[in-house]
Amino acid sequence: MRTGYARTSAAHQELASQLEALHRAECHKVFQEQISTCVKVRPELEKALALARQFREAAPETPVIFERNYIRRPRATTADGRRPSTTTCSPSPSRSMTRASPSPKSRRS
């Protein structure tokens, strides 16, 4: 079972090339949406993952492949080539920005 997901974040972006790539990858079901990168809840992505989980539970011996196709945009830079210091998305207050340190067992000597 091969499930696909395509997303654009701006109205002027097109999904056609992503959908074509997912079609070439022989996806059985493709989910698509146009939603901002700032939005953390992506309904179509959740549906795609739920379908993949359902297939995995129903037929554990059958491989489930999730294809995500996207087009990378160039990162914003200032005139002198540096990245701007401001962001367009405010971080969610419920998410921690800290990184857990590795457990003692995972450290190498």
Rank of each mutant, 00 (worst) to 15 (best):
M1Q: 02
R7W: 03
R7T: 05
T8N: 01
T8E: 00
H12P: 05
S17G: 02
L22S: 05
R24C: 10
R24T: 15
R24E: 10
R24A: 13
H28Q: 06
H28K: 04
K29F: 04
I35A: 05
K40I: 15
E44K: 14
K47Y: 09
K47I: 01
K47S: 03
L51A: 02
A52T: 09
R53Y: 09
Q54I: 09
R56I: 00
P60G: 04
E61V: 12
T62N: 01
T62Q: 03
F66N: 01
E67N: 14
R73T: 14
R73D: 12
P74T: 13
P74I: 04
A76K: 15
A76Y: 12
T77C: 06
T78F: 00
T78R: 03
A79F: 11
D80A: 15
G81M: 06
R82A: 14
S85I: 14
T86R: 14
T86L: 14
T87F: 11
T88K: 10
C89M: 05
S92N: 13
P93F: 12
P93L: 12
S94I: 12
R95N: 13
M97K: 13
R99P: 00
S101A: 13
S103Q: 05
S103T: 11
S103P: 01
K105V: 09
S106Y: 04
S106N: 07
R107G: 04
